[in-house]
């Protein structure tokens, strides 16, 4: 089930081949949804699900897809899955669907999806494709959660909406950094994570 190669497919995207940190994909949604921790987590889960299943579907029909319209086929598969998720959420969990509102639609435009479908699912069997989807989804979700954690903590002084920085600190002059809840700080936070990541993984450093 988990051969050595499959293990690499599953775990490489977590660090050495992380879609956000190394391939610099999916940055736009990383900026948009990470002002709070909770939407970051839900967005991460949604992307894992859509990525895994679209990978499997494309992999199943990969031998029938005409090469010149393959992008259209991929888009149709992804969009169909996303709309299905959205409709089911409205019908069965309306509160969550309200919270997610725009994010669900944003999944369609996530570059990681197209990237994985093109680079992996078109050339591999369904099981490895499924693992690849899970792995890349997790790699993306992990970065989202880290960024969301720091932005909510420093920007609002809360986590999951609960106050974690004690009133004591505010009394002594501590202030929330309002800049952290604005999108540019997500970019800078991601850059800091990339910095730490490259410093720890020498083989990723470019020689200039």
């Amino acid at each position: 089930m988990l051969s050595k190669k499959n293990k690499e497919v599953l775990f490489n995207p977590l660090s050495k081949d992380n879609p956000v940190l190394v391939q610099i994909l999916g940055i736009c949604s990383t900026l948009a949804v990470t002002a709070n921790l909770e939407p970051s987590i839900v967005m991460g889960i949604s992307v894992i699900a859509v990525l895994a299943f679209s990978n499997v579907i494309i992999s199943l029909i990969r031998n029938t897809i005409p090469t010149s319209i393959r992008i259209i086929v991929q888009l149709v598969v992804v969009a169909t899955l996303v709309i299905m998720v959205q409709q089911f959420l409205i019908a069965f969990d309306y509160d969550v669907s309200k919270q997610l509102s725009v994010f669900i639609g944003l999944i369609i435009t996530n570059c990681i999806l197209m990237g994985r479908l093109e680079a992996f699912a078109l050339n591999n069997r369904p099981w490895p494709s499924f693992l690849d989807g899970i792995g890349n989804g997790l790699g993306y979700a992990a970065i989202l959660v880290i960024v969301g954690f720091f932005r909510e903590l420093l920007g609002s002084g809360t986590l999951f909406g609960y106050q974690v920085i004690p009133q004591f600190c505010y009394d002594h002059g501590y202030m929330n950094n309002g800049l952290m809840i604005l999108p540019p700080m997500a970019l800078i936070t991601v850059a800091c994570i990339i910095w730490v990541h490259r410093a720890r993984n020498k083989e990723l450093q470019e020689n200039n």
Partner: peptide, 8 residues
């Protein structure tokens, strides 16, 4: 709201 930015 329908689609305002979360957190903002």
């Amino acid at each position: 709201h329908e689609s305002e930015t979360p957190g903002l």
